[in-house]
Nucleic acid binder design. Structure first.
Lengths: 380, 380
DNA sequence: CTGTTAGCGCTTTCAC
DNA sequence: GTGAAAGCGCTAACAG
């Protein structure tokens, strides 16, 4: 009698052919295929985990000696060391990092709090930060909050309970209260911000020059003849958004163009809102001839709105994004955007954290601001 | 005297204006902006971490009582509990998960090994798996290996040393030896494979019906009049690749088309190779009129090659990808592709792991195969 | 209801 | 060189 592993029903099961000698089944209710292997799995209870005491006993020596041998300390008889290593190997000994961390009160692990990792920005930053940190002997554990403040707080608690040695943070768009991060500071655990930084906390941080990036982007639009430039801004809670908005604003002023508040809309970083707002802008009596968006996903969504309305880009509306997501090169027309040095952001964040971790930090916290670069493509 | 935090030089520093009252600097050598905050950071050594003993002493009770109160056990005087909670709060007590895990010999943490997370596939799978697992009270730590076998082995060692309670794995394209994963099995730590599964290990796993997905994709090309269909296959080491290749193969046979080995090229999942191979295919005396690619990034790279060579898609070459990466909808022309239910893969993987974690698993390991869906767009 | 004791697996004095 | 003993912070019997 075959039972669907999902809905536990028996009636809805059909045989679905044989693949590599195995009968496959299909549950009509769940629309799911499944099968069972031939070999039988014998799930013993968790067996005894071998410890240094096991090694010590087998060798008739003390566990201190085993500990020393395993760590390759100097004051140890070469023969003893080899014997320990051999037995450890033979017993398939795996050191217990928990016990080690407990006694050393350091875990060699650092945490990273990010708001999401669906766009390419955070994965790239994570990878380069990780590379630097792993090389320095640290493990990196990544927590993503899905832009939810509550999840971020929960993640921070978990990392704290697990006694990470340090923390890298790019907070959610909802985060206004930073107590969960101040706790780390109070406990003497170094915190480094990147990308989205808290201006009220005195910690090292890594940002890009959002102001300048936005300024140059808008300048480019002006120099290519645009006069009514709209801005899809990010949430006011993010310094990022504010800096880009300021850059936009100052570029208009600098070139003597009026700042029309009707053309500035700040949204919550969800694509549905982009859709609504872009349509709204296009429906204006005097619609904009250009759009500078907070980020690439927004710009690309704007592109789609234009496509669906038959509005030609860039002829009728020029569009510029921010970040240089790999997608921006692939869309049609390809997207002009302000590139951020993602790998460098990661490396710098890792470097600042290592500084804080290693040195008895005698300096004021360092704040790194990386340059951006305008990449002109066909959407402008 | 200002020193560049990167190159440590003094000569290459320029002042770069004042932002929000702070002097900013620019290092010509490193092309980097930086600044220092006003407030001075006093980096004390790591302060004493408060423990249940501290709470016990302050209250003049035993630490067992504190432990019980904190965990909300039943046999405790409500007054005592409240007092403990108050002091814990006042002292900013944070439980030490390491100590807890050590004594319980379980960490409530599960590991996830993925080959990369730059494409959208793994992030999506991770997110949905995480959701299920967090709800069940587990933390998830994610390790990405960048498709490097050595990194995967190192990650596995770390997770083992940190005594994860369970493991979810999608291995690298290089992985042929699975000893690092068998170790978990031997130690009684449940392992679940997903997406890229090891056929030699008797563990639960989650896959999609690659064979059928490929078959349907090629069938679609045939039914829309294509006769010379090329296949850009993945590495032979991945069952994924082999199943998709088989689906391609059988579809041709089923419709009475010849299988031309010249049109089947297997590549190593790097985009540079895609470029070379697609060009090679297009240079053939009898070039293909359609291409079925192992995955969306490859298909999109093929699209770019065509664009740069002025080859019209789909008129001259129809292209079909695999996975339904969000990008595939955005490229021009939009990409026909075989969608994988990423969220469901994650959920199922998490479910299988929870089963193994909770139940004393009395069954044979379950193998789930999820259906795919052909999404026809403009590239075919 | 609460305290005492032992111990999770490891490192670290301090003797010998 | 090596061992004995104490302790990292917490939980879990077992008494009372």
């Amino acid at each position: 009698m075959i039972r669907c592993p999902h809905c536990k029903q028996v009636e809805s099961i059909n045989r679905a052919g044989i693949v590599r000698g195995k009968q496959r089944y299909f549950c009509k209710a769940c629309q799911v295929h499944f099968s069972f292997p031939n070999e039988v799995h014998t799930p013993s209870l968790r067996p005894h985990q071998v410890t240094i005491v096991d090694i010590a006993e087998q060798l008739g020596i003390s566990k201190s000696t085993v500990s020393r041998a395993l760590r390759g300390q100097s004051d140890i008889h070469p023969g003893t060391r080899q014997a320990v290593l051999d037995v450890a190997n033979q017993l398939d000994y795996q050191p217990n990092q928990l016990a080690h961390s407990l006694v050393k009160s350091r875990t060699n692990t650092v945490g990273m709090l990010v708001p999401e990792f669906l766009s390419s920005f955070f994965p790239k930053v994570i990878m380069s930060a990780q590379q630097v940190l792993v090389e320095a002997g640290y493990n990196v554990v990544i927590c993503q909050s899905g832009e939810s403040y509550e999840t971020e707080v929960a993640n921070a608690r978990t990392l704290l309970a697990n006694r990470v040695d340090g923390l890298m943070v790019s907070h959610t768009k909802e985060t206004r209260n930073f107590d969960h991060l101040r706790t780390f500071q109070r406990k003497g655990i170094p915190v480094v911000f990147f990308n989205r930084v808290c201006e009220d906390m005195t910690v090292p941080n890594v940002t890009v020059d959002d102001y300048r990036g936005a300024f140059v982007a808008v300048e480019h639009l002006i120099q290519t003849g645009r006069r009514r430039i709209a801005h899809l801004a990010g949430p006011d809670s993010l310094p990022n958004s504010r800096n880009r908005l300021n850059g936009y604003h100052d570029a208009l002023l600098h070139y003597g163009l009026p700042v029309d508040n009707e053309l500035i809309i700040s949204y919550d970083l969800t694509l549905e809102k982009v859709n609504i707002y872009v349509n709204h802008l296009l429906n204006l009596p005097h619609p904009p001839d250009a759009l500078f968006a907070m980020n690439d996903p927004a710009a690309i969504e704007a592109l789609r709105v234009c496509r669906s309305r038959g509005i030609r880009v860039p002829a009728e509306l020029a569009i510029v994004g921010f970040s240089d997501d790999p997608v921006s090169e692939l869309v049609e027309p390809s997207l002009t955007t302000v590139a951020q040095p993602m790998a460098e952001i990661g490396r710098e964040t890792a470097r600042l954290l290592l500084n804080a971790l290693h040195g008895p930090v005698s300096d004021v916290p360092e704040q790194v601001m990386l340059p951006t670069q305008l990449i002109v493509r066909r959407s402008s």
